Amino acid sequence: MNKKTALLIVDMLFDFAHPDGKVFYPQNQEILPRIREVIDHCREKNILIIFAKHYHRKYLFDKELGSGRRINCLEGSGGEDIMPELGYQEETDYIVKKRRYNSFLGTDLDLILREHDIRNLLICGTKTNCCIRATVEGAYHLDYNPIVVKECVATNDEVVNKVHLADIEKYLGSVITMKELYEKLDGGELDD
């Protein structure tokens, strides 16, 4: 296994990425095949794959579901299921259930990364201005090297998407294209 790099797929779940989902954005359907391509390339390089799942308990209080927010990803609803197109593999992939935007907050993501000696965290998924941004900030503050794959993140507004990618690139980590990612992986640049 590549000792220094992991791939994190954030919230590519039924409620976000399927047309019948509770908080669906068409942009998420567009990035699904690109994310699968990145997953497949990372699998070829023996890179650790982690899926972060927005997940809310069905009957118990959850602050994030208050204040008029749209209810989504409730346990047992099917809305919290990983999109099957992504090819989750139970034997090799991790799932991190999160109740906040930041995939690190209140989860064991940091522990999983430390146990595998990870330094570089490739990030794909939805929403660039919310869960992607919060997760990148979490990675940055824990001294990981967050690397967002540009064509593999989306939100419901392309201008908002570009603004947050620009901020991430300027202050928090790297934003690279799929082509650049493959060149780095094939050249062993993410091994150190």
Rank of each mutant, 00 (worst) to 15 (best):
D20N: 14
D11C: 10
N129M: 08
C124R: 01
V163N: 13
K170D: 10
T128F: 08
L109V: 05
E80V: 06
R114S: 09
R36F: 05
N129Q: 15
N102E: 03
L48R: 10
R100F: 03
L65E: 12
T126K: 05
I9S: 10
T155L: 05
N46T: 03
N156K: 12
Q27C: 03
D191A: 13
I95L: 05
E44Q: 14
T177H: 00
I168W: 05
H41E: 14
L172N: 06
S67K: 14
L165G: 04
E75I: 06
N102Q: 01
K97L: 13
E64T: 11
T177K: 01
E137Y: 08
C73R: 03
I123F: 05
N156H: 13
V10E: 01
T177Q: 03
R34D: 07
D191Q: 11
V163A: 15
V153C: 10
N156E: 15
R69E: 08
K22R: 15
R57L: 15
L7C: 11
L181N: 04
L113M: 09
D93R: 07
R133G: 00
K58G: 01
N161P: 02
V149L: 15
N102F: 02
P19Y: 12
K150W: 04
I82D: 05
D117M: 06
T135I: 09
C131G: 13
D117E: 15
T126E: 13
G78D: 11
G76V: 08
L105R: 10
Q29I: 07
D192I: 08
Y88K: 06
R114N: 13
G66W: 11
R70E: 14
I95A: 04
V136D: 03
H18Y: 10
K22I: 02
M12N: 09
L165M: 14
I50T: 02
F16M: 13
G21R: 05
N46A: 08
G68E: 06
L190Y: 14
A139K: 02
D15A: 09
H116R: 14
R36M: 10
H56F: 15
S67Y: 14
P26Q: 09
K127F: 11
T92V: 04
V23N: 01
R119M: 12
K184Y: 11
R43K: 06
Y144T: 04
G68D: 06
A154W: 04
T107R: 05
A154F: 10
V159I: 15
K53H: 11
E91G: 07
R36Y: 07
K63W: 12
D186G: 01
T92N: 06
G106D: 07
V23P: 00
P84C: 03
M12Q: 10
F51D: 01
V23M: 12
K127N: 15
E183V: 09
C73W: 02
C124W: 01
L105C: 07
V136F: 06
L181I: 04
A134N: 09
N120G: 06
I132T: 09
E91I: 05
P33F: 09
E37L: 13
Q89A: 07
I39L: 09
D157S: 12
G138I: 04
D191R: 10
R57P: 00
